[in-house]
Design a protein around this nucleic acid. Sequence first.
DNA 1: CCCCTCACCTGATCGC
DNA 2: TGCGATCAGGTGAGGG
Length: 276
Amino acid sequence: MPELPEAETIARGLHAAIAGQRVQRVRVHREEVVEPMTPAAFRRALTGRRVQSVSRRAKWIVASLDDGARWVTQLRMTGRFTWNPPSALRTEPHLSISLLLDGTQGGGVLRFYDIRRFGRVWVLDPAGWSALDARLGIEPLSREFSRRSLAGLLDGSRAPLRNVLLDQKRVAGLGNVYANEACYLAQLDPRRLAQDLDESEIERLHRAIKTVLRSAVERRGTSFSDYRDILGGEGEFQNDLEVYGRSGEPCRRCGGAIARIVLAGRSAFFCPGCQH
DNA sequence: CCCCTCACCTGATCGC
DNA sequence: TGCGATCAGGTGAGGG
C-alpha cells in the first residue's frame, strides 16, 4: 500500500537511476493506465524527452522533463516500478508500461507493473500539473505543516479523526497504515471527531504525524504486502507497526489487545487501553 | 459544503 | 479438491 514513505523511497530510487537520461522508446501495454490520455499521446509526450529530476508530491511520483512537462505516476494499491539493464521491450503479466532510457551511465529499462490496475501514469503540461498540485493538501513533512495549520484543517470537521487524516485535500500523503499509526502515537482514539481535539491533543497529533512519517521514510517504507522499491528491496517499517494489522495482539505500551473496527468502510486499528 | 458509501480491480485466504 | 465469499485500500463519483 504505497503511501508517502513508500512513494518517497521510490522517487529517490528513480532519481538516482534515471535523472539526466533520455527516453528512447515507450510501450504502453495496458491502455487504461494512461487514461484519459491515449497511448499515442502518452508516447509522443515522453519519447525523446530528458528526465531532469524525480521527486514526490503526496503519494504521486513526479518526474520533471526538459520541455517543462511533468511525467506523473499514481501508484494506488499495487503500482510498482522496476529498473533493469537495457533489453528488448516485452510483454509480461501485469506489465502496464515499459520505457527504454539512455544516458551516460548506460541507461536501462524502466517498467511499471500494476496487478490491480488502479494506478495511473500521465504526462501533464504546466497548467495540468498546477491543477493537480492545487487539489492536494499540505505536505506533512514540510516546514509549512505547523500545529496551527493542522488545527485549521481539523477545525469544523465532524468526521472521525482517522478519516480526516486520510483526506488528501487536507494532509496529503497519509494512507490507512500511517493514519492509524499516527493516532496510536498521539494516543488518540481514531473515532474522535476531528473538531473536538483540544490544543494539546493537536500538538500530540502534529508531532505524531511527523515522527511516524520520518521514521518510515528512514526505514524505506512498509512492505506489508506488495510494496517494493525499484530494485525489488523491501522496506522495514512493518517491524515497527504498533497497531496496523495487529488486531488481537498485545499493545506494546499497555499490554491490552489491539482492536479492529471499521470507519468509512476501512479498517481502523487502535489500542482501547491507551488511545482516548 | 460535508461526510459517507460504493465501484473499481486482482490475488490471497477461509469455510464448507 | 474445488469453489464461492470475503477482504485488502487509494481515490473519485454520487447521494443524503
